[in-house]
Nucleic acid binder design. Sequence first.
DNA 1: CGCTAATTGCGATCACCGTTCGCAATTAAG
DNA 2: CTTAATTGCGAACGGTGATCGCAATTAGCG
Lengths: 231, 231
Amino acid sequence: MTAHNPTDVWRRPERATVGPKPEHSRNGIATAALRIADDEGLSAVSIRRVAASIGAGAASLYRYVKSHDELVELMMDTVAGEYQLEAAGENPREKLLNLAHQGRDIMHRHPWLAPLLLTRPSMGPNSLRYLEAALSALATVDLPGPAKLQTVAMMSAITSAFVQNELASAPASGAAESATTSRVLYLAETLHTGNYPHLAAAMFGQAHSGHSVEQFAGIVANYLAGAGIPG
Amino acid sequence: MTAHNPTDVWRRPERATVGPKPEHSRNGIATAALRIADDEGLSAVSIRRVAASIGAGAASLYRYVKSHDELVELMMDTVAGEYQLEAAGENPREKLLNLAHQGRDIMHRHPWLAPLLLTRPSMGPNSLRYLEAALSALATVDLPGPAKLQTVAMMSAITSAFVQNELASAPASGAAESATTSRVLYLAETLHTGNYPHLAAAMFGQAHSGHSVEQFAGIVANYLAGAGIPG
DNA sequence: CGCTAATTGCGATCACCGTTCGCAATTAAG
DNA sequence: CTTAATTGCGAACGGTGATCGCAATTAGCG
């Protein structure tokens, strides 16, 4: 019956008024989880693993976090704190573009982030501060509130999707290498059958022209312009 | 050492040349898994659950599918078969828009799809046919192959992200209801603190103006126009 | 000060999960 | 008819998220 929501973490006080001093903190736990995710991927972030990495018992983590999803929520909000929100630009479009570039950098630093952002909303204080900053950049724009919200959401989605493409086609390291080559091999086989002629033609074109950053800037800027954000 | 790739399903023959007749088929398994996912969500699609639903032992499923990921791959390709690829439009932009609308409909029929499409590539025959059709719509467009590919990928990502927004803000049914109201409640609390003024203002604007379909069409059309797809 | 009530850490345990193994039964090919 | 490959599957392994109950700790109150 109690289908807990991950965002409930933010409604609970971090520290109780009575009882023994907690030996750990949300921040410490989030940082530990973050390091594991950066090093070994999100799937390595299990309750037991994180608990062990800070020298705690598995069940103890549940004093700080009510579910695994809440742990992830903590992680997401922690990295959302990496934004430099005061950074700005000449006009609304430039300001948003600035945020988008920062988002791309953050997702490159934390490869597990992009899928999460595409999959679930994050509502921690840092995430809300980011949203607030993005909307603040649109303060002078004459658009209904929900439209502004949607524009920002769409920009974030585009950013995440783009980064995920980048990461997927990046040089696979170690164990993931065989997986990637296996996929490429299968694709090569399939394309040689003669079905999918347009696909075959498209993939044999010259590799991406220009740098990835510029492509990204172009796509986002173009989207914002079309959405009515002045620049 | 053997880090299996989900796309390996498509390299194995469905049926062996010798041995007893299989009692099931990839299609039957995919259909059963699909029904479960539609009814109870993707998390209900476990090997044991699917096996039981077709009257098979858990270990038997591994004769058809080498991993849970391959099962998901089967599901994704099955729903990719719901596209009507011969449907068209007057110009490239209209043709792609047509595909985007179909994609949106499919994701509405199968709420578990959008997150998957945003998260992993699908390379089954039906998925490739879809890609081929989309690229075929761009045959007359003067753009390098990789750019066409990226445009299609971006359009799909935008579609998935948009649908996920739609589904998230849709009337939550049953058990998910409490989760949604809990989130709204937390948001209301937080906005009343006075921080996040722009956020508060944006959320109190009139609800989405116009129908969702039209917003979707506008966003996609605008993106395609900016990407240089003639219409 | 001492008592009470709340809170912490956590070992043990539960219900699942994906996956592997070994074996009996079935079948096409030589 | 024999042989070799393939199927179905019960049993088991290691791992997961989550819960429970208990001993230890602590703030606030009388």
